[in-house]
């Protein structure tokens, strides 16, 4: 920080902020808890797993790029509904989304994750890491699954997840921000609200620290995704150019 004092906020302000962010999260979370129950946590059958595994890498990459892009569109909508986000300059809105939207998708993934079976909701059913073998990046896939399992073990409520997502998105240390101080103030307020909610929910002392550790894990996953994409693009430039969603290419520089 540049030494500016923390914004003055009352408990009521923090409650109000927490409620607003939570509402935005629920409105834009793509899958509601109730809907997920209805999917009855059906896993892919062995034949279906084999069918994903036998797809050409280009087809599986395209499918995953489409699914990620769909999820990102909901994150953009989440950002737009966070109090103060649309008051930032447009450069900074873009910078924050470019750097943070995939991180929020990864955070949200724990809502769709079955820790006991090590499966995630994907393309209509629950999939284990083996479903993604054709991508040719087993190490990244298993790191993403490990991250999700770790997030699940924190057993965050939707309110906590919403505020953590907002705080990830409003990271004031992203490169190329023009009005860093504005973003910093928003992030500080969001983190205070998160802390307030964690205390209200009688979380153990270390809960906030555990979440802070997740931030560095997220950054490393996003860097690894970029590296894998670069390697894939080097082999299949035409697939990326003609078949990948334009928003995905815009965000990840493909």
């Amino acid at each position: 920080s540049d030494g500016d004092p923390l914004p003055t906020v009352s408990m009521e302000d923090l409650d109000h902020l927490a409620q607003g962010v939570s509402k935005s999260h629920l409105e834009t979370c793509q899958y509601l808890g109730a809907e997920l129950q209805q999917t009855s946590w059906q896993n892919f059958l062995q034949d279906e797993v084999k069918s994903y595994q036998s797809k050409p890498a280009e087809v599986m990459w395209q499918l995953c790029a489409v699914k990620i892009t769909e999820a990102i569109q909901y994150v953009v909508e989440f950002a737009k509904r966070i109090d103060g986000f649309m008051d930032l300059c447009q450069n900074d809105q873009i910078v924050l989304l470019k750097a943070g939207s995939l991180e929020v998708v990864l955070v949200r993934m724990c809502r769709l994750f079955d820790s006991q079976k090590n499966t995630v909701y994907f393309d209509g059913k629950f999939a284990g890491p083996d479903v993604f073998r054709a991508l040719g990046c087993d190490d990244l896939v298993s790191a993403v699954f490990d991250f999700s399992r770790g997030m699940c073990s924190l057993r965050l409520t939707e309110d906590e997840l919403a505020l953590f997502s907002a705080s990830v998105l409003l990271s004031a240390d992203r490169s190329w921000l023009q009005e860093k101080l504005q973003v910093e103030k928003l992030q500080q307020k969001t983190q205070l609200a998160l802390q307030h909610v964690l205390q209200k929910n009688q979380r153990e002392e270390g809960a906030l620290n555990k979440l802070r550790c997740k931030v560095s894990a997220l950054r490393s996953l996003v860097i690894r995704h970029s590296e894998k994409l670069s390697a894939f693009r080097a082999l299949h430039p035409d697939t990326v150019r003609t078949l990948f969603p334009p928003l995905y290419k815009e965000l990840f520089g493909a």
Partner: peptide
């Protein structure tokens, strides 16, 4: 701006292209 045309559009749209 041209480089982030779609993000700009999504940010400016009052409704999202996805069915919320």
């Amino acid at each position: 701006k041209e480089k982030h045309k779609i993000l700009h559009q999504l940010l400016q749209n009052s409704t999202s292209p996805v069915d919320l």
